[in-house]
Simulated assay, not measured.
Amino acid sequence: MTTNVKHDVVDLLVDQHGQIKSLFGQLARAGGTQKRELFEDLVRLLAVHESAEEIVVHPSARRRIDGGDSVTERLRHEEDQAKHELHALYELGVDHPDFDARLAKLSDAVIAHATREETEEFPSLRKSLSSAQLSRMAGALRVAEATAPTRPHPHTGESAAANLVAGPPLAVFDRVRDAVRDWREKHRDQED
């Protein structure tokens, strides 16, 4: 994730959208171990990104922009659908014969969603908030990302409140699971 403190929240999110698009592109061309590793990176980035948006960005957009309720509700619904599909793909695994086709559909949906955020939500935030407020939101987003789960948990809900309550304990669980998985991968050669 981008850590440049000079970024405001919109810059930070647009940078992350670029990272997500890049990972989808790399995944479409990858195979074997690289494909699995890239998918795990994508899962982590999307899970953290969406949770943080639900906690920090959408509530502010709902309050601050014209039609904010309908815009954020549609975006949250799209994020919830993506979270469910990402979870299903994670459970399916990169070697499953349906994985690539389902990943391509998810990629199209996530990229279309990011474009909607960048054209509908983000410009309105820039108009309605000062640069200082947008910078503070970037700080809040980074804090939310630090405590967000690294896996999609579609049954926790899609609201800011659900993410604030469930996010930190799930994040601890996910990060422990990630560390164990990474340790196993690192030591797999030694076991053989």
Results as ranks from 00 to 15, higher is better:
37 E>M: 07
37 E>A: 10
37 E>T: 12
37 E>K: 12
38 L>I: 15
38 L>K: 15
39 F>D: 07
39 F>P: 14
39 F>G: 09
40 E>D: 13
40 E>M: 08
40 E>V: 15
41 D>R: 15
41 D>W: 03
42 L>C: 13
42 L>M: 14
42 L>Q: 09
42 L>A: 15
42 L>Y: 11
42 L>D: 12
42 L>R: 14
42 L>H: 15
43 V>I: 08
43 V>R: 12
43 V>M: 06
44 R>N: 10
44 R>G: 05
44 R>H: 11
44 R>A: 06
44 R>Y: 06
45 L>E: 09
45 L>P: 04
46 L>G: 05
46 L>A: 09
47 A>Y: 13
47 A>H: 14
47 A>S: 15
48 V>T: 15
48 V>A: 15
48 V>Q: 14
48 V>R: 14
49 H>R: 09
49 H>W: 06
49 H>G: 08
49 H>N: 08
50 E>G: 13
50 E>I: 15
51 S>R: 07
51 S>W: 02
51 S>V: 13
52 A>H: 04
52 A>N: 08
52 A>P: 06
53 E>T: 10
53 E>Q: 07
54 E>G: 00
54 E>F: 00
54 E>L: 00
54 E>C: 00
54 E>Y: 00
54 E>S: 00
54 E>Q: 01
55 I>M: 05
55 I>C: 03
55 I>R: 05
55 I>Q: 03
56 V>D: 00
56 V>K: 01
56 V>G: 01
57 V>D: 00
57 V>L: 01
57 V>I: 04
57 V>W: 00
57 V>G: 00
57 V>M: 01
58 H>I: 01
58 H>D: 02
58 H>W: 03
59 P>K: 02
59 P>W: 00
60 S>D: 03
60 S>M: 05
60 S>E: 07
61 A>G: 11
61 A>K: 06
62 R>I: 02
62 R>W: 05
62 R>M: 07
63 R>E: 12
63 R>V: 06
64 R>W: 09
64 R>H: 14
64 R>K: 11
64 R>S: 14
64 R>D: 12
65 I>W: 01
65 I>D: 01
65 I>Y: 01
65 I>L: 07
65 I>R: 02
65 I>F: 02
66 D>H: 10
66 D>C: 07
66 D>K: 11
66 D>L: 07
66 D>F: 06
66 D>W: 05
67 G>T: 11
67 G>V: 15
67 G>P: 13
67 G>N: 09
67 G>L: 11
67 G>F: 10
68 G>I: 05
68 G>Q: 13
68 G>W: 01
69 D>K: 08
69 D>I: 02
69 D>E: 14
69 D>V: 04
69 D>Q: 12
70 S>E: 11
70 S>A: 09
70 S>C: 05
70 S>R: 10
70 S>V: 12
70 S>I: 08
